[in-house]
Design a protein around this nucleic acid. Sequence first.
DNA 1: ACGGAATGCGAGAACGGTCTCGCAATTCTC
DNA 2: GAGAATTGCGAGACCGTTCTCGCATTCCGT
Lengths: 351, 351
Amino acid sequence: MATNKNATINDVAAAAGVSRATVSRALAGYGRISKQTVDHVRSVAEGLGYRPNALAVAMRAGKTKTIGLVVISDFTNAFFDRATKSIIDRAKELGFRVLIQHSDEDVAVERVAVETMLSNQVDGIILVPASTTKHSHLTPKKLGGKPVVIIDRMLDIQRFTTVTTGDEVAAKEAVLYAGESGHTNLGFLIAVPGIRGFTSTQPEIPITSVQERVDGFELGVKTAKAKSVWVYSEDKQAIAESAVEKLLDSPKAPTIIFTSNNDMLLAVLKVVGERGLTIGKDISVVSFDDSPWAAAMVPGITVISRPVEELGSIAVTELVEAIEGNTKPKEIVLPASLVIRGSVAKLTKSK
Amino acid sequence: MATNKNATINDVAAAAGVSRATVSRALAGYGRISKQTVDHVRSVAEGLGYRPNALAVAMRAGKTKTIGLVVISDFTNAFFDRATKSIIDRAKELGFRVLIQHSDEDVAVERVAVETMLSNQVDGIILVPASTTKHSHLTPKKLGGKPVVIIDRMLDIQRFTTVTTGDEVAAKEAVLYAGESGHTNLGFLIAVPGIRGFTSTQPEIPITSVQERVDGFELGVKTAKAKSVWVYSEDKQAIAESAVEKLLDSPKAPTIIFTSNNDMLLAVLKVVGERGLTIGKDISVVSFDDSPWAAAMVPGITVISRPVEELGSIAVTELVEAIEGNTKPKEIVLPASLVIRGSVAKLTKSK
DNA sequence: ACGGAATGCGAGAACGGTCTCGCAATTCTC
DNA sequence: GAGAATTGCGAGACCGTTCTCGCATTCCGT
C-alpha cells in the first residue's frame, strides 16, 4: 500500500531541475524569471499534482485566511443554521475558510472555543456571545490583536464591531399590528436561556436580543394600552408547552400569543392544536424569526423576520475589512420586519 | 496601538532563561527534565498567556487534527444541519476540529472544496457526494492517501467507508402501514436534484438515497397491491406545489401522499391547506425525515425518521479510526424507522 | 578517588513554504 | 571591446514547533 504522500515543493524542484525558489516564483508569478522556466515548472507541478501546503504558507505569511465562527449551536433554532450558511458562503467569496465551534450557550465552552481558534491562528473571529457581561477571554491581549465581530447580541462593552437586528422596534410594531386587529388581551411567551422551568415574573435576561424583544413588546403594550400576560420559559419543548397551558388558562386568557423564537412557536402550535383551537381564528400567534415551515403552514404564521443571511454576510465583510486594514468598531443594526400572513385574527371591536 | 502578537515558544524560553527544547519538554511533560524547571517554565508560560501555534505543531507532526466536511449545504433540509452539528460535536470529543465547505449539489464545486481541504492538510474528509458516478477527484493519488468517509449516499465504487440509512426497507414499511390503514390509492412526490420542473415519468435519479426511497416505495406498492401515482419534482417550493396540485387532481386521486423529503412535505402542507383539506382526515401524509415542526403540528406528521445524529457521529468515529490506524472500508447501514403520529387516516375498508 | 551511569539541558535539524540577497551570465552602451 | 546594466536563478534565512543527539555535570559504587 503506497502511502502516497502529496508532492512538496522540493519534489517539484527536483523533478524540474530547478531550485525551490524558482518553483515558488514560477507558480506565484512574481520576480525575475524566464517564460520558458515558468511554463516548464508549471507543467511539472501539474503532472505531480502539486498543491502548496496551506499550513506552511500560512506560517510563513502569518495569515491563515481562516476565520473562526463560534455560535451557540442549537441548529433547531432556524437562526443559527441560516447564519452559519451565509457566513461560510460569504467567507468563501472573499477567499476565507471557516472553522466552526459551538458554545452551547455556555461561557466556559465559549472560552475554550475561542482559545482553540486562536491557537489555530484564525485571522479573526465571529462570535455569538453566550453572555453579555462575561468576556474576560476577549481582551485585546488574549486575542493577540485579532479582530472580533459580535453578531445577534451585544456585549456590555463597545470594543468590537457588532451586527444585530432592530428587534425592539419590530417587536413593538408587531404588538401595534395586533392592537389594530382588535386584540386587547395579549400573551407573551419568552424563552430565557439559563432559567429552569417557567415563571411569570421577569427573570434576569442574559441576552440583549431577548431583552430587546421584551422591551419592544412592553412598549407596544403600553402604546396600545392593552392588557398583557407574560410567561418566561426555559428553552425546552416540554416546559414551553406547560408555559403555554398556563398562558391559555390565565384568568384573562389572551386572544393572541407572541413568542420570542421558533421553538416557543412550536410549543404554542402543539398545545393549541391539542386543544382543538384553530390558529388565526380561535387564537392568534406572532413569532420572532421566519422559517420555511412557518410560511408553508395554512394559515401561514405571521412572523417578525430578521435578515439573517444579510447579517451573516455583513459580519464576514466587516471582519475581513478589520483583518486587512485597521478599522474602528461600529454598531450595525439591520431592520427586522413584520411579515403578515394569516395567523392573526381580525377581531370585531365590541366598543 | 500595540499589535499584541501572541507569545511564541521563543518568548517563553527567553523569559524563563532556558532553551526552546526545555520549554517544549516542560509543557508537554516528556523526556528528562527536573521538576523545578517544569514548574518554573509552566508558570512563566502561563504568565505570558502562551499557547502553542497549532499550525507549527501540525507542520512538524504532519497531522492537523482537523477533518474536512463537504456537505451539499441546503440547511433548510433538516438532515444536513443535524448531521453537521453531530459531526462537529463528535469531532470535538475526539480532539478534532472541523472545516466545512458546501458543494451545493455541484460536482465542480465539490472538487474545489476537496482540494481546499487537502491543501489545508486535513487528516481526513467526510463527504456527501453530489454525484454517484463522478468522483475522479477522489482517487487515492489525489487524496494523498487521506481517508474519506461517504455519508448519506453511496458511490458506484466501494473504495471508501460509507455510512447510510436503510431507506428502502423503511420506505416499504411506510407504504405497508398505509395499506393496513386502508389506503389503496397512493401518491408519491419525489424530489430529484438536477431536473427542471416536474414530470410523472421517472427521470434518472443521480442520488442513491433517493433511488432507494423510490425502490422501497415501489416494493411496498407491489406488495400491498395498491394503485399509485408518481410525480418527480425539482427541489423548489413553487414547483413542488404545482406537482402536488397535479397529484391531487389526477383521475384516481390518492388518499395519501408520500414525500421523499421535508421540503416536499412543506409543499404538500401548503397546497392541502389552501384547498381546505384536513391532514389525517381528508388527506394523509407520510414524509421522509423527522423535524421539530413535523412533530409539533397537530396532527403530528407520521415520518420515516433517520438516525441522523448517530450517522454523523459514526462517520466521525470511523474516519478517526481510519486516520489513526489503517482500516478496511466498510459499508455501515443504520436503520430508519417509521414514527407514527396522526397524519395517516384510518380508512374503513369498503370491501 | 576514580570510572561509569544517570541526569538535565542546549544545539540544531526538520516540516514546507516565501522571499531577500547576491552571484554569474547575458545584453546593452558608446 | 570594456564597463555597466539587466536578467535568471540558487543559497539560505525564516515562520514556530518537536525531537534527536550529544555534552556537561552530578551521582553512585567500589
